[in-house]
Design a protein around this nucleic acid. Structure first.
Lengths: 186, 186
DNA sequence: AGTTATCTACCTATCGTTAGGTAGATTGCT
DNA sequence: AGCAATCTACCTAACGATAGGTAGATAACT
């Protein structure tokens, strides 16, 4: 049962990678199949439709992302620490994987996604705003925490896109740094 | 000569709209054709390949965008005014058109674009960073101006995506407002 | 033997693109 | 001014390739 799901996970890994570089409409199930070393028909054994792959990828991504973040209350509302932690999780995606945040890509093409995949994209954003708002609330207050939460999320998602497009990691770092400076000194 | 180019422009208008909602790989030349009331083959009379449409759309978009911004030196380095003007141009795209910035979408799926279209996407970002940096330089100094420029561009691009995905214009406004607060009070 | 995972082989729909043609406007030549 | 040549802007029809997806045989593991 441990090794049985290997191919299924491989499919998700490959599909996630492709979604994060070319978008949901930029690859085919055959591309995924070729990358994991099986035939296209076999992909459909694990996931009946391409949309199902999208749903599974987004669910797993959101779950992992929040797991990486940990408990929002663990940082005692320290704005700088929150931004540093949050930036680190994004940085891993961009610099280690060389890929954008899945939901930055999906959010950009949201009008062209299967309904369920679009829905999961929204869930990701909602959960992340909630996480950030909770993490910041104890010192900033609910209203200001919410505004900062959206700002942090938006800046880093945008920074990833610009940074990746211009192939310059320093741009992402610049945004992360400015974010700390500008929100801590208040 | 005035009416002759109507269809060509219509094609660009429709294609831009589609690129900004479903991404470059989310629509077909037939979709464009149907929307302008001609056949797919006739689209290729005006633009040999789909990539050519992408190139023309990105060129026109970048040109218009910079034209809307005007001269960067006209704002005398006033950070608040720069952000307000810049936000307004983005707001028009999001709230009036109900669509994302073209290059936010293209930047997100840059790995899946024809080379020339990806190239033009980069040009857009470069020119916008340059515009913002120039607009801010006289009061902030070159280094800080560059950092702020990237931050403003990234935040607003990201804000559009999150705002559109969650169908809540207030999120964009919140980022624009926070941006002013956080960068003016320095 | 039964389940799980994969295969071959195929289907239908659509993709971007091309070929070949046509009606009507424009141009160049006499 | 008349007429042939050319151009513009579209058309129908079809191309080969690829999309997502399905049915049924086959292999592998327990």
């Amino acid at each position: 049962m441990a090794e049985t799901t290997a191919k299924r996970d491989q499919i998700l890994d490959v599909a996630e990678g492709m979604m994060r570089t070319v978008g949901f409409n930029g690859f085919s199930t055959r591309d995924v199949a070729a990358a994991v070393g099986i035939k296209a028909a076999s992909v459909h054994y694990h996931f009946p439709t391409k949309a199902d792959i999208g749903v599974a990828v987004t669910e797993r991504y959101t779950h992992r992302f929040l797991q990486d973040l940990g408990e929002p209350t663990a940082l005692a509302g320290d704005t700088e620490k929150v931004i540093r932690l949050y930036s680190t999780v994004f940085r891993r995606a961009l610099i280690r994987d060389g890929k954008l945040c899945l939901c930055a890509v999906l959010g950009a093409e949201i009008g062209g996604l299967p309904t369920d995949v679009g829905f999961n994209t929204r869930i990701f954003f909602e959960k992340n705003i909630a996480w950030l708002a909770t993490a910041l609330a104890s010192r900033l207050g609910d209203k200001r925490a919410k505004a900062f939460a959206i700002h942090i999320l938006a800046s880093l998602e945008g920074a990833m896109i610009v940074s990746k497009a211009l192939r310059d990691d320093a741009l992402f770092e610049s945004v992360a740094k400015t974010l700390v400076e500008v929100t801590s000194r208040r």
